[in-house]
Amino acid sequence: MNMAPAFYPIGTPGIPWGDAERAEWLSRQSHQRSYESEVLSVIENLRSRFDVEEYGHLDYGSEGYPLMAIRSRDWRDDLPVVLITGGVHGYETSGVQGALQFVDRHAEDYAGRVNLLVAPCVSPWAYERIHRWNPHAVDPNRSFRPDSAAEESAALMRLVAPISDCVLMHMDLHETTDTDESEFRPALSARDGKPFEPCEIPDGFYLVDDSEKPHSEFQQAVVEAVEKVTHIAPADNNGEILGSPMTARGVIRYPLKQLGLCASITSARYRTTTEVYPDSPRATPEQCNAAQVAAVCAGIDYALAHQ
């Protein structure tokens, strides 16, 4: 497991970043993979079977990124809506690839039973740079608020707003990685001028339920399905995962709306955030994608059986 640096290399400990520090951080980011070839081309190949739409466009300097969503072809107003989001944090690869894999291999199994809306890569700039933030050093997954500071988040909220009250289930696909501890959490502490407090990265899959509207049976159904694909994260010696008490096996709870998290953007009865652990020696990239797909399918099956 990667160890966190004693001091983050940008800024002065205890002092929040200003424009100069953010500019220095941005100058260190570089392309590491292609949104065009790994995401857009896959979506393009799905056009013959699903409706595809551009729901927004990011303009960052000389670069532009279309924000794409995939819908059920035969959308019916009398059916419940299932919302799947991935890539809110661009570095969390299986969230993006798992969402695309679900659409390709399983979405048509639910035709005539639900309307599917899938936004597989909410943060394409960060996807290309394998990063958590957008170029303004803003975390989109703390920005799902009416006055959002992240256009990635604002665009998704605009897309979802017309059907928010019709959503039966929303699953937001994420990963927890070793780089959370070695890079992203130290960067957050440096950006905000706060001390860095190390945490133990959990080895395995877990879910984040909504502490304001918990649904334990739904969460457990998802965990049980995923366990057939990859291992479930145990609690640490304090009975916690990343500082939060484990409320059931493989489940913790956050106040989703209070934190501005993606899973809070609808009034869905069933909502959760998946967390896959891709750095485990016990999990391959294929297993990570499969875990996301298993979670989505189990979640939809449970939601349909318990409407």
Score class of each variant (00 low, 15 high):
Asp74Ser: 14
Ser27Pro: 01
Arg113His: 12
Asp210Trp: 01
Thr273Pro: 02
Asp279Trp: 09
Gly61Thr: 11
Ala154Trp: 06
Pro80Ile: 12
Glu151Val: 03
Glu53Leu: 15
Thr247Asp: 02
Gln101Arg: 14
Trp17Phe: 06
Arg132Met: 08
Asp192Gly: 01
Tyr254Thr: 01
Val39Gly: 11
Phe102Pro: 01
Ile15Ala: 04
Asn134Ser: 12
His89Pro: 05
Asp172Val: 04
Tyr8Gln: 05
Pro140Cys: 09
Leu58Phe: 05
Asp178Tyr: 10
Cys262His: 03
His31Cys: 02
Pro186Asp: 07
Val122Asp: 03
Gln220Pro: 04
Asn2His: 14
Asp78Met: 01
Gln29Trp: 08
Val42Ser: 12
Pro5Gly: 13
Arg22Asp: 09
Ser189Phe: 08
Met246Ser: 14
His131Ile: 02
Asp236His: 12
Leu259Ile: 03
Leu207Ser: 09
Ser280Arg: 11
Gly204Asp: 08
Glu21Pro: 03
Gly18Glu: 03
Ala248Trp: 12
His89Tyr: 07
Glu212Ser: 06
Gly14Tyr: 13
Ile241Met: 11
Asp203Tyr: 06
Leu259Pro: 02
Phe205Gly: 09
Gly61Asn: 04
Asn2Ile: 06
Tyr35Ile: 01
Ala155Ile: 00
Ile163Asn: 00
Arg271Asn: 11
Val114Tyr: 10
Ala187Phe: 00
Tyr127Phe: 15
His136Phe: 07
Gly98Pro: 09
Ala20Ile: 05
Thr247His: 09
Arg145Ala: 06
Met3Val: 07
Arg132Glu: 04
Val276Tyr: 03
Ala107Arg: 04
Arg249Asn: 10
Lys194Pro: 00
Ser72Ile: 08
Ala291Trp: 09
Glu24Tyr: 00
Asp279Arg: 10
Tyr91Glu: 10
Glu197Ile: 14
Val208Lys: 01
Ala225Pro: 10
Val42Met: 06
Ala107Pro: 02
Trp25Met: 05
Asp210Tyr: 01
Gly260Ser: 09
Ile10Glu: 05
Val276Ser: 13
Asn289Ile: 15
Thr179Arg: 15
Asn2Gln: 13
Phe205Cys: 03
Glu21Val: 05
Ala150Cys: 15
Pro146Phe: 13
Thr177Ser: 14
Val276Met: 12
Gly14Ser: 05
Ser182Ala: 15
Pro135His: 03
Ala263Cys: 04
